[in-house]
Write a protein that binds this DNA or RNA. Structure first.
Lengths: 221, 221, 221, 221
DNA sequence: CATGAATGAGGCTTCATTCAT
DNA sequence: AATGAATGAAGCCTCATTCAT
């Protein structure tokens, strides 16, 4: 996981107890932990966060539910790990695009590609954001996600407005409204998108970019 | 509620028990019932279906939770009423558009407008569909909603393909993929759309139609 | 229960839900509630607060543990009710003594008698204070008890010092230290005192007052 | 630890397992063990026996909770060690006083001083006895403590009655009742007594002895 | 039509303890 | 002598639902 600071990152639980000098031990521990996170992520994606019980997760791992608390101090901290890892990766990728620069059309296209590329390895996290955010947002510990999203909005809207300023994009559309439509369309695709299907992540991204920039109509605008 | 048949309509449970011979009484009862449904809908929209307890609903109505069961025989039947009423209205409107006919571009634009128009009075239902469908879909009683959606998909995809056939729409896009993107983008807007804001339902619909047909770019395609 | 205000009184749980116009209902409800409190009090006294489970209480009442939460919103709120009721009664009695006035020896003797008199009907509360206060004090909700005790200390110390000022009490003893010894000796007696035994509350109080004022020695001081 | 026989001493469990043939090793082990007992004692005194988890103790020692079981075979055996060491020391001191002999007033005064002197180094044990005995007494393994207390009661009551017989002490007081009051008052002082405060152990003992023998009043009895 | 009480299933979490490494 | 993982029992609490009054 690439923790980018900026207040992101899960509220990790008192790992202080597990000392820190040994080598193999902590690597293995972390492997076990990541395995459990992956199992939980799949269940959260499939059944939803609330409907997934810690027993479901433990069953999947072949242990008792209480044993999960050797690795995590709450169900929340598991989903936190899932979500923060997703946001960290996406933010890092977006930052890289911005640093590479380019005209707004290129930047926007790359941002779209970032999303679809991140969607594949973080399918569960995106699923949770789509289905369970309305529940999770009530917990203070997830405030950092709302703040991360606000920052992302500023980034996209900035590019759209820059494009309108240089005449690349139509002037009669609302930048913020447009951003939200783009964002939602992309992420909500997680509900049906199958990388193994006819179109892979790049394919869907290209399809989406095509429609986004030029619409579905033929002929002159 | 306009029950359009076709398997739609909530699975109302043993309404025979309380629907005795009274006339005026049942009108009042029905008003009370609709009031309770509205209260529940708002809570479902705000906190999510699972996170809303029957006690929350009862509190809002100023009664005890057990008393709700004089009006509904389960929490599921409440949300069923909310969702079926939304789908009934939308299906009816879509059918009307199809009957009016017209070229695919016109029809598609009208279908988009239907959605945004329905979104306003059925905000809660759309919210529930966006946030809680992943949970609700597991119950057999809601199968009818999945079937309704399949029918709607056929309807839209049919129009898009007709448009591609007549050269109105680009040939290099995937009709089903495009439909899903359109659908998701529209409904997910319920998360931020505020009819009292800068743009009303028609305004947002127009904005969306503009981008959909012609993209956000300027200049030749 | 005589709620004397002054920040005392348990954090009573949202009784707002149970409306308030009916007569017999709320009286009965309150009777049931008090019955449960009494059962819990006896268990807390016998086994300790922590070692008493909500199941123990429910079993004693012949209901399921979850059903307790129809009457209380937590185990803490039950013990709160027990303790606040005890403190309220004691504070009220002490206030009455102060208002009657008299020389410090008389007042002190009456305060002692107050304690032993209150001990009998509130045996469980005193037991909990002796055995479980070290645990309960960690919860903010019980801060009011610590504050009540501070006020009582001021009251007693005031009387002892007044007695020293008028030459009634020895000058070579520490008022605060003496108060604490008196207080502790009295309340800790709950561990062995049995009202049905050889001495009743008044008898033990008199015995204690005799030793307190004149010591156990014979002959000149 | 001075194990005085008479059923005292902790129920040490299978120490044969870890007490192999090493000499220097067992001294070090014993030091480590005593260190852990001291850490545990402080936590028990502060938070109570039940509320202190073995993990709390292990954290304090900088090890994992499972590792404690190389030194003790249960949480009970730790508190047993704390309490038996306290009782052993007190009993030995009391025996020495009895052996020195003297008139009941002198003996009683010395017994009181014994208590306050023992209280300081065994603060935690006394705290546990005050706060957690009601819980611990349910375990057979602590029966020996109840028996030790009975023996002590006989010892004190014997001295009081001897004093009443020789006319040193008032005849109108109950020996057993008086003993319990003295005992409770002394030990419960652990809740507020601070050796570093205005009065040290001897000072508090003298204060207490003065009030005990002559009361707080001035003038003739 | 509502109340008040209860059910029963289940949820998350804690914790003393065990044991292979 | 310690770790890291797990157990198993239990704890407090929640919630949809039922039902006599």
């Amino acid at each position: 996981m690439v923790s980018t600071g900026k207040g992101s990152g899960p509220h990790r639980d008192g790992s202080g107890a597990s000392g820190g000098g040994r080598r193999r031990g902590s690597v293995l521990a972390s492997e076990r932990r990541e395995h459990l996170v992956r199992l939980a992520a799949e269940l959260f994606a499939e059944k939803g966060y609330q409907a997934t019980t810690v027993r479901n997760i433990a069953d999947e791992a072949g242990i008792l539910s209480g044993s999960l608390y050797h690795h995590f101090d709450s169900k929340e901290s598991i989903v936190d790990e899932i979500l923060s890892s997703f946001f960290d990766e996406l933010n890092a990728a977006n930052k890289a695009v911005l640093e590479r620069g380019g005209d707004p059309r290129t930047v926007l296209a790359e941002l779209v590609r970032n999303c679809f590329r991140t969607l594949v390895p973080h399918r569960a996290a995106v699923m949770v954001m789509q289905n369970d955010w309305n529940y999770l947002r009530r917990f203070d510990r997830f405030d950092y996600l709302a703040r991360a999203e606000e920052e992302t909005e500023r980034l996209w809207v900035g590019q759209i407005e820059r494009g309108q300023g240089t005449g690349l994009f139509r002037d009669d559309i609302d930048a913020r409204l447009t951003y939200r439509m783009i964002r939602d369309t992309i992420w909500v695709a997680v509900r049906w998108f199958q990388p193994a299907g006819r179109l892979d992540a790049e394919g869907v991204a290209d399809h989406y970019i095509a429609v986004l920039f030029d619409g579905i109509s033929t002929g002159p605008r």
